[in-house]
Amino acid sequence: MVLIEKASIGQAALGQLEPTDGDPLRKFFYSLSPQTVYRRFLSPVARPDQLERLHLLDVDGSQRQALVAVVDGDIVGVARYARDQKRPELAELAVVVADAWQGQGIGTRLLAALADAATRTGVEGFAVLTLPDNQAALRLLRRLVPETRLRFAGGVLEGVVRLRAA
C-alpha cells in the first residue's frame, strides 16, 4: 500500500490499497466480527475466497479505488468505490472498519479522503446501500454530506450522496 496520510499519535495512517495487498486484506477480513461482515457485504461471508469475484484487489485509481487505514502495519479499515458502468459519474461506496477501531473517527477520515480522491477523478456522487440498523454508517454519511437523504427499499436504505467538488 502507498501511504497518503501519516499517523498522528494514537491514530491510524491512511494509504492506498494496491493489487499486491492480498495478505493484509485477508488478515483484516479475519479480524472482522460476523456482524461487521454482514453489514459490509449484506450477506454472511465465511471465507475471503468467497469474495474473489468482487475483485477487491482490482484497484486502478479511477474505475475502482480503495483507501485503507493502517495501524502498526495492519489494515484496520477500508473505504472503496467502484464506478457505475452505466452512469460513470456515480460510484458505489463501501466502508468497513475493524470492530476494535469503530467509533474512533477512522471511517470519517477514510470517507473524507475517498470523497476527495473520487471527485478528482470525476465522480459526482456515491451510490449508497446500507442496512437500516447500521446507525454508524448513517452518521458517517451525514457527517460527509449533512443533507443526505436515503430511502427505504427492499429492506435496505439506498440513495445517492452528492459530493462537492474540492
Binding site: 449484506l42 450477506s43 461471508v45 469474495l51 469475484r53 468482487l54 463501501a94
Partner: peptide, 9 residues
C-alpha cells in the same frame, strides 16, 4: 448480485 461491491449469491 446487489451492486458491484457485494457478494453474488
Amino acid at each position: 448480485r446487489v451492486g458491484r461491491l457485494r457478494r453474488p449469491l
